[in-house]
Structure formats: structure tokens, C-alpha cells
Design a protein around this nucleic acid. Structure first.
Lengths: 336, 336
DNA sequence: TTGAAAGCGCTACCAC
DNA sequence: GTGGTAGCGCTTTCAA
């Protein structure tokens, strides 16, 4: 099927292309009967405006790139859904770009922006350095959501990770745990760093002991956290609680604990982070910190749209978090 | 930063835009010293080709839409990763389109194809009817991957769901189970239908009893499967095994079983489908059917590229599946 | 090996 | 209200 062009529609309707364009764009100064006959021709010819022409003319695609490490991340999935909804409201489409932490792949996606195939980028994670991000932000509309670099003149939407971690660990203290361990990742991203800080501060403010042996470093993911937990359990003085920086890592810690013949939370209470879909369905269900994915995604999109529109503001916004108590720390909790 | 155009590069290099274009496209008939001076100008001006002009001229975007219900599906995530890799090989970018089973949202994405913002579509799922899909396939390059309608002249890449389900249920029979139940969904998609058929055939060929009470209908997801399992357990003659059409539903069935004070797999063995990331880490780990996500994704992309190139073939290909035995049916299994 | 120029489909300015 | 038309940035044909 050959697609009709605006010229053919104009001819069929006996008007100029300018008029057809006006009808397409709901320009009100078109006589009713003209509009009707144009719409009729559009119908008859099964005409679809070719966005390629439009994009070139307007120098925009109304397309937003969302850059993340992987789409298999339920926390990100919730943010994305909100970004999509908000984007639709503003007439933007979203293109998800999974980099798998490969700088080459991320670079290729950045080209899409530089080559005008996209109007802006929302970074959920990145392989860029702070300097690279800063330079990109000087030339193009971008925003950081969740993870971020500070002080590089790029807008930020996130959560107060330090306070959230503090809250999680304080919960473990509140249920009477005395030796609280931390399973984390040895990277340098802001959320990891701040969660460690929050953990340390919570120990201090609750007068609980800290020792190097209480902090285990793993890679992301279940298997590595399982091994880290084995390590924690190998010391003479075992922890009676664990705060992991992600839910999957909490699951790994739980499985390891159970495999060693210990009880969760009886012997060891475990808390995760992000309130991903695995937490309510794991066995036992997992206590975790929930973030405001919906608000964060929508805000990120909204701020980006304003930047595209020329705004010079560089907002830095934190959104709410909340503790969700489940079986892995308190089997008597009321369902949330 | 104002972006230079091809015209400015031409001027700076003292050549015509045609020559710059040739350099950009690696046209070999450019004198070496001309090429060097053009490349130099490109450097100096920090020039980026504007794809909007190129796309219009070429009437293509080298963009592929992948339509799916939700990105929070680990099985789909694996296919997508493969699609992306294969796409990159052919110079295509992927745009993930999550419809959340909303016809309006899907329609909006189809517009992107019809408006030439994308060169083709890979459907991992759809809200279209068979007829709608057929008509779309007449006018545009599309392919179905995983789920599909048959006989509508649209290429298909999938797995033999009937045989795979048969294999899963036969495994349950092989470990000595006599009353094997099935948790499924009451929809009309092909994978669901064929898995039910495979289940039924496996019962018959293993001389196991079938009754309506053995088949429980749920919606997708953990919670609904939990309820379905409660229902199965409410009958006088309880099942001693369950085959669920998805891993999450298998997890729901397991949790329900354990909450009732029964053992998995001691009292009830449970098998799922898709080998998603939850299966090895659930407690107990879940026996499941694995599909060839990587091969399927790559094949889908390759076939689509051929269609875009004008191929008239309508391939229908099945890929391998395999049973992965874990604790939920056989705690003595060797790790896979 | 290079350049001039047409034209992809559209929008928006200017004239009427 | 409507039409003519320039021009967005690029590729490609044709001529030189």
C-alpha cells in the first residue's frame, strides 16, 4: 500500500497543502466546509502524516531517551511507567535504552540525542563520568533520576538515601537487634555511599557496635549476596540482623541463612531496599524501603520538558520514602 | 552550543555538501586529501549529522518498535536483550513500547509505525485482534515473537508450547505424582491454550486422572495464583503436584502450599514456565521450562530486517525448550 | 573526483 | 480563510 502524501490530499480535496497542514494541526482559521472536505480526503486516501517531514521542519522528534543499566529492575520499571504516562501527557514518546553498563552502548544512545533523533534524556543510571555528564548537560536537555552526580548543573530527582537507610536500620534496632550487618556493593554510586552512611549513623545513634566484619561487599544480585552472607555467618559473633542495599541481595541473604539451618527473622532479621515485586512474594516476605517511584518519574519528565522548553532552572528534589515491614523482620506485622 | 550543519562543514572545508555527505557515508570515491580536510572540518566544528534530514531523505529511521504488555517480565527482558544485540548488528535501534494491555496505548505506538517514525514492529504480545494484525502485516513489516496468531500471513518465532507443557507434566509424572493439577489463566492467547493441551495430553499418556477440579483459573500474577491454589487445596482429594503456566504463578502456589503447613515438594511438587530470574532464587527454587530467548530474539530481528528489505517470505519457526529441574519438584537434583 | 541542484514531506510566513 | 512558497538537512543523480 502506497502511503499518500500531503500533496495528494490537497489535490483530492481541491485545496493547498498549507490548508491541509492547518487541518492536521487544528489551526482554527479553517472554514468548516473546507475542514470537512479535507478530512474527507484524508479518510479516502487513508492518509498518515509523515513525521519525518514534520520532524525535520520542526527540528524535534518529541522522543525522550531513558537510559538505564537494564530493564530487569522492577524499581526502574515503576519509574518508567510513570515517565511514560507523564510523557504522553506532554506529547512525548519514550525510548528505553538499556546499556548493560557498556560505555560503547551508552555512547551510541547519546549519539541519538546529539543527532537530533531525541529531544532529551532521563538518566536512571549511567556509565558517564561526572565531567562527561556535566558537559552533556551544557549542550542538551537532560536530567538525573535516582542516581546522580551533585554539583554538575544537571537537574536531580531522587530520594534521601541516607535518611532512608537510617530508617531501615533503626527499624532493625527497634525490634531489638544488637548486631546489625550491612550487605552492600563496592562501587562509587551515590545511593550505595549514602546508604552506608545512613547505616553507620543508625548504629551510632542506637548505641550499637560497629565493626568491619559487619559490612560485607558483594556484587549486585542474589548469588553474590548469598556468598557475602556466608561470609558474615562465618565469624564467631554472628549478626542478628542484616540490612542489604537491594531486595534481591536481601533475598540472597535470606536463602543463605535458611540453608544454614537458621531462622528468618527468628535468628536473623533481614531488610532490603526498593520494595520491588519480589519482596511481597518471597518466602518469607521481605521488609524493605519503598521509594516514590511514581512521583519521581513524573517529576523527572516534567522537569525535562521544561528544560526542553528553555527553562534554565536546575531543580534538585528529594521525594518521600517509607518503611514497609514484612515477615523477614516482623512476622506479626499487619499486611501492607 | 549551536550545532553545525553540513553546509557549514562544506564551507569550512572548501568543498560542496555533496562531498561532505560522501565522506560521512564512506563513499570511496573521495580523494584522500579531500577526505582529510573534510574530516578536519567536522572535528573543528564538532559537527553531528542531523538524522532528521537523513531520515526524511531516506524515508527510514532504522528504528524498530518492540511491543509488549509490560517490561517487568524477565522472560521478555531476555528476548529484548537479544533483539537489541541483533538490531545493533544491522544498524537498528530498538524502541520498547509497553502497552499495559491498553488498546489506546498500543494504537498510539502503531501510529509511530504508520507515521514512518519506525521501520517495523516486533510483537511480543498484543491487544490487536487477529484480523487487525493481519491487516497491519499487509501494509507494514511486522513479526510475532512468542505469542502469535496463526494463518494471518505474519511471520512467527516461538516455541512449541504444547510439547513443552507436555514435557513439564511428564516430569511430574516421572517423579511419581498421581494427581497433577494445572493453574492457568482464562484468556485466549495461544501459549495458554497450548499449555493446557499439553497438560491434558500428558495426563492421558501417563494414565493419570483428569477432572475439572484439577484445573484452576487465575489472573496473571502471584496473588491470584495463591488464591487458585487455595481453591485446589479445598477439595477432598488434594493434588500432589501442580503445573503453573508461569513462574510467578508457581511461586504463588508454593507460598500458599507452605502457608497451609504442607511441604514443597514433599506433599506437593510445583513446576512453572519460562525460567525467569525468580526461579533459581525462590525458596524453594522452582522447576521450570526454559525457552531459547536468545535465539528467538535474534531470529525475530533478522527476519524483520529481511522483511524491511522486501522479502516476501513468511517464516514460522519453533525454537528449543528444556526442562530445568530444581527443588520445587526434586531436591536431589544436581544444580543447573 | 567533485559540484550543482532536485527533492524527501512538512510547517509557517507572507500575500491576498 | 486560503494559497504560494521557502526551507528544514540530507542524499543522490547527473554533468562536468
Amino acid at each position: 500500500m502506497l502511503i499518500a502524501t500531503i500533496k495528494e490530499v490537497a489535490k483530492a480535496a481541491g485545496v493547498s497543502v498549507a490548508t491541509v497542514s492547518r487541518v492536521l494541526n487544528n489551526d482554527r482559521k479553517v472554514a468548516d466546509r473546507t475542514r470537512v472536505s479535507v478530512e474527507d480526503a484524508i479518510q479516502r486516501l487513508n492518509y498518515r502524516p509523515n513525521l519525518l517531514g514534520r520532524n525535520l521542519r520542526l527540528q524535534q522528534t518529541r522522543m525522550i531517551l531513558v537510559i538505564l543499566s537494564s530493564i530487569s529492575n522492577n524499581f526502574h520499571a515503576k519509574i518508567i511507567r510513570s515517565i511514560e504516562n507523564e510523557g504522553r501527557l506532554h506529547g512525548y514518546n519514550i525510548m528505553l535504552c538499556a546499556t548493560h553498563d557498556d560505555r560503547k552502548i551508552e555512547a551510541a544512545y547519546l549519539e541519538l540525542l546529539k543527532n537530533k533523533m531525541a529531544d532529551g534524556i532521563i538518566f536512571l543510571s549511567t556509565t558517564l563520568t561526572a565531567l562527561e555528564m556535566k558537559e552533556l548537560g551544557r549542550d542538551y536537555p537532560i536530567i538525573q533520576c535516582g542516581e546522580y552526580y551533585e554539583g554538575i548543573d544537571v537537574p536531580i530527582v531522587s530520594v534521601d538515601n541516607e535518611m532512608a537507610a537510617f530508617t531501615a536500620v533503626s527499624h532493625l534496632a527497634a525490634i531489638g537487634r544488637k548486631r546489625i550487618a550491612h550487605i552492600t556493593v563496592s562501587n562509587d554510586i551515590i545511593s550505595t555511599r549514602l546508604r552506608l552512611s545512613g547505616y553507620m549513623r543508625a548504629l551510632k545513634e542506637n548505641n550499637l557496635p560497629y565493626s568491619e566484619h559487619l559490612v560485607a561487599y558483594a556484587r549486585y544480585g542474589y548469588g553474590s549476596a548469598y556468598a557475602a552472607m556466608e561470609n558474615l555467618l562465618s565469624h564467631d559473633t554472628k549478626p542478628d540482623a542484616v540490612f542489604a542495599i537491594s531486595d534481591r541481595m536481601a533475598a540472597g541473604a535470606i536463602k543463605c541463612t535458611i540453608d544454614k539451618g537458621l531462622q528468618v527473622p527468628g535468628d536473623i532479621a533481614v531488610a532490603g531496599f526498593d520494595n520491588t515485586d519480589i519482596t511481597p512474594i518471597y518466602n518469607p516476605s521481605i521488609t524493605t524501603m519503598s521509594q516514590s517511584e511514581q512521583d519521581m518519574g513524573a517529576a523527572a519528565m516534567r522537569i525535562l520538558v521544561e528544560r526542553i522548553g528553555g527553562s534554565e532552572e536546575i531543580p534538585f528534589r528529594f521525594f518521600k520514602y517509607s518503611l514497609i515491614v514484612r515477615d523477614s523482620t516482623d512476622p506479626t506485622h499487619t499486611e501492607q
